[in-house]
Design a protein around this nucleic acid. Structure first.
Lengths: 208, 208
DNA sequence: TAGATTGTTAATCGATTAACAATC
DNA sequence: TAGATTGTTAATCGATTAACAATC
């Protein structure tokens, strides 16, 4: 698996390969050519072969790819199987929704939920008790948290991010509408800017 | 505003321009050059000028751009100000979270929420009563719904999408992990594939 | 007017597609 | 073996960056 500098466009396609290969596996299909995969996933066969060859020669001439092997390889490339510890900051509807997603099945273990709202503190979601936000830093250090799901309001976002950086959390999944400033050597930010996504819809709808 | 075939990469940057210009406006800054904007938004000055010139000459040589005008122009390009009618399908935590977002302020009016869960039906969120899913099609036709926020489970996603297409809903904001098949002439799909986003984080974390 | 900064063309860079020799 | 399909190189396409004349 020759790493190096894989381009972001390739990396963002990997989860889609992973999803489709899982579907194929569940359907009992154990062999697929880049051409066949192309027809169901919507990338060109050429692109599929190029993408996969960034990581190694997973196929076999004249045969194609073994679905189970490829699924497993891409899982490894994506770092699945590794256990990650996660926390949710901001335990409103969105935070609770994320807690209820089945991310554990992919190796993302939820170890804490935090909020400033007294009305939420003490409530249990999936066995995790919502704690006051001033417990966040301490807990992140103790549990060695890897990923924080940031679901606070706009105003708190950057301050919480600063605290997360300080206590060694390596990634922030950012659901706030703020572009966080963090040191890129230590911390990854993955944005889910819902409003940007919705405005893109608006753009395409506007002239009928 | 010379439309035509603006590339997707440009379109996806527009909401970010819109956000930053709003910030500038609120800070009372009423003039900005592409170079200054470049420093705060993180695109190159050249790219900013190229992007904006897809839609018209909004600047002035020797001066730069008027923040208020540019903000307003980009809002128009994004189709803001126009009223859109929206529904939420799947009124669990995520659906409720979306209902509580302040999308109305951007012109997205919520007119209905639907679920199959008897325990949720009748509950009111922001004045909207959750109704049984079999009322969806009828309501979409009556209200002429523009956008559906799809928050069902994986299994129902494609069936609901088919129904939405049939009753004239023009866009689906897709929060399910399914790649929906819809006729591209009539219906836009905007995906928010949370698991893909999380796996991207995992990719970058995997080798420390 | 002189200085600043756009709008726009040209150059570069990167990503996708096409082609085909290698080989299972 | 003959047929199929990969891995990989070359060609194309599109997006970003650089440069600069136009002009406020």
């Amino acid at each position: 698996m020759a790493n190096g500098k894989i381009s972001m466009t390739v990396i963002r396609r990997l989860p889609k390969y992973h999803r489709y290969l899982k579907d194929l596996l569940e359907k009992g299909i154990n062999r697929i050519s880049s051409k066949e995969l192309s027809e169901i996933i919507g990338f060109t066969a050429s692109q599929i072969r190029q993408d996969l060859n960034n990581f190694g020669g997973f196929g076999q001439q004249g045969y194609g790819y073994n679905v189970e092997d490829l699924y497993s390889e891409i899982g490894t490339i994506l770092g699945l199987g590794k256990p990650y510890k996660t926390v949710i900051i901001g335990a409103g509807n969105l935070g609770q929704a994320l807690a209820n997603y089945n991310f554990e099945s992919h190796g993302f273990e939820l170890v804490g939920m935090y909020d400033v709202d007294e009305a939420l503190i003490g409530k249990k979601i999936k066995g995790i008790e919502i704690k006051p936000s001033d417990r966040l830093v301490e807990d992140c250090v103790i549990h060695q948290v890897d990923i924080a799901y940031l679901c606070t309001n706009r105003e708190s976002a950057q301050n919480v991010a600063n605290a997360l950086v300080k206590c060694g959390v390596r990634a922030i999944w950012n659901f706030t509408p703020v572009d966080l400033k963090v040191p890129e050597e230590t911390t990854i930010v993955e944005d889910v800017h819902l409003i940007d996504s919705l405005l893109t819809i608006s753009y395409f709808l506007k002239d009928h």
